[in-house]
Design a binder for these strands. Structure first.
Lengths: 135, 135
DNA sequence: TTGTTAGTTTGTAATGATTACAAGTTTATT
DNA sequence: AATAAACTTGTAATCATTACAAACTAACAA
């Protein structure tokens, strides 16, 4: 996704497409590892020396509110971020700490009658295929 | 559940059944509201003046490790605790902040082939029935 | 163009949940 | 009773996140 298209998408959602915001989203789009605020900040800093950690926080909150991205509290401690806001599950390997995406079926998310679901998080932790074979 | 039976269960799992630990578990057993560390601490303090917040943390970690309870990171910020370790979903009402339990079906937890699931968390947030009707 | 205003960025300081640690206490075992 | 291991407690540190205020930037009107 080009920076121009990212900027257009932000404008469409009523967000000012500042250089910093575009950079954060571009980073998330290109790094599907569900990075933390700190990883994003540290990786973007070399190319944007004036970058502030607070800007990363502000941007992520704005993007999440507008629905462009999704936050994952799959680990206690730090938040992770995902450029894909569509419904899918997340698997955290307790050995290598990798977070994997996986598809979920519609019936997975059946809430009780009368309840209105706004956001669904399916977090599973365990051993991933790689680690299971290596250990 | 009596304190004696709680103590027996702890011993069975290789945990020392101290008065403090039994109190924490007894509290969780009787309060199915998924309380936070601070709520547990504040509520138990009047009857146990020497109680320490650190003991609540230590106890909850020990109980979780042994499988007697479950921790929920359904809200960023504070951890919630649940006396029921069996698989079930949690619904957080974004209006009244109540956390509801709900049943989940077996197919909800289908991880990719080769992956080994150790823990499953299904968190849904939205408006609960009560709040939807009142608003 | 210039001025005005609202929105954004940035750095620093505060907050608040959690963990680290060490000294004291309790429990299980001999 | 003696000993060692486990547990409790209070205090101090840690660390992600938020609050805040000043500087900056973009949009828009006169």
């Amino acid at each position: 996704m080009t920076r121009t298209r990212i900027a257009e998408e932000m404008s469409r959602l009523g967000l000012r497409a500042t250089a910093q915001r575009v950079s954060v989203y571009e980073y998330l789009w290109n790094h599907r590892t569900h990075p933390t605020v700190d990883t994003i900040y540290e990786d973007l800093l070399p190319d944007n020396p004036s970058f502030s950690r607070t800007t990363v926080y502000n941007t992520l909150h704005a993007l999440e509110k507008s629905g462009m991205i999704r936050s994952l509290s799959i680990e206690s401690g730090e938040m992770h971020y995902d450029a894909d806001p569509a419904d899918h599950g997340h698997f955290l390997c307790t050995h290598c700490r990798t977070i994997y995406d996986f598809p979920i079926s519609a019936e997975s998310v059946a809430v009780p009658h009368g309840f209105e679901s706004e956001q669904t998080d399916i977090f599973i932790s365990g051993k991933c295929k790689n680690c299971k074979e290596k250990i």
